[in-house]
């Protein structure tokens, strides 16, 4: 009962946050709302008993990417283009929302139709539980000696795959550091100060 209430409330907050992100023009506020968004989804993961996913979501979503986006904002402008006077873009008047709306509507309908076949949450007879999960549950401890099954799958059974992922993440980290880290002399482009007020 209380689980349902928490789920519904968190999902409603998620919807409100995403609509607000779409409609805002102040990029700093949008980054702040991104933080709220990933805290909310991490909370939802915790409610659904996936604490390791929630760990990742909180560390990457709320922690690292907020800092990265703020660092990017520090190097660029903190407003969407076309909002301030200099090099303003004309708002495209021939913007017709009907085609994207129809695409989104059809895709959403198809996805909802797809959910009818999904087994219930935590159903022991779901296909995900019946094929390989049993093998891992029975043999993880004797095969690898790692007490946590998820860790055993990631670091031992799929160790080579994880090595590749780590290489990719390392490359991405180096690239990000080259782009926005390090010291750089301040050239002409001064970072505009965010004013005391904005419109939401």
């Amino acid at each position: 009962m209380i689980d349902i209430l928490i789920n519904v409330t968190l999902l409603a907050f998620l919807a409100i946050t995403s609509v607000a992100i779409l409609r805002m023009t102040n990029l700093f506020a949008i980054v702040m709302l991104y933080g709220i968004f990933s805290l909310l989804s991490a909370g939802l993961f915790v409610v659904m008993d996936a604490p390791d996913v929630a760990f990742t979501e909180a560390a990457v979503g709320a922690g690292i990417s907020t800092v990265l986006m703020l660092a990017t904002l520090a190097l660029t402008r903190s407003r969407k283009r076309g909002h301030e006077g200099d090099y303003e873009e004309k708002p495209s008047r021939a913007h017709r929302p009907w085609l994207p709306l129809a695409v989104v509507g059809i895709t959403g309908t198809a996805l909802v139709y797809g959910t009818w076949d999904i087994p219930g949450f935590g159903d022991p007879n779901a296909p995900a539980q019946t094929h390989v999960a049993r093998y891992y549950i029975e043999n993880t401890m004797s095969d690898t000696g790692v007490p946590n099954m998820v860790t055993a799958v990631l670091a031992s059974y799929r160790g080579f795959d994880t090595l590749g992922e780590v290489a990719v993440v390392f490359t991405a980290g180096v690239a990000v550091l080259l782009l926005i880290g390090g010291r750089r002399p301040k050239s002409g482009a001064k970072v505009k100060s965010e004013g005391g007020e904005d419109e939401a």
């Binding site: 700093f28 980054v31 702040m32 933080g35 805290l39 991490a42 760990f55 909180a58 560390a59 709320a62 922690g63 907020t66 800092v67 703020l70 660092a71 904002l73 520090a74 190097l75 010291r183 750089r184 970072v191 100060s193 965010e194």
Partner: peptide, 23 residues
């Protein structure tokens, strides 16, 4: 862990706002 991450994020945001950059 959430408490720690929250702290880091807020410190980064405040640093950006007061100093306009991270350097």
């Amino acid at each position: 862990v959430y408490a720690l991450i929250n702290f880091i994020g807020v410190v980064a945001a405040l640093k950006l706002v007061t100093q306009k950059n991270f350097h």
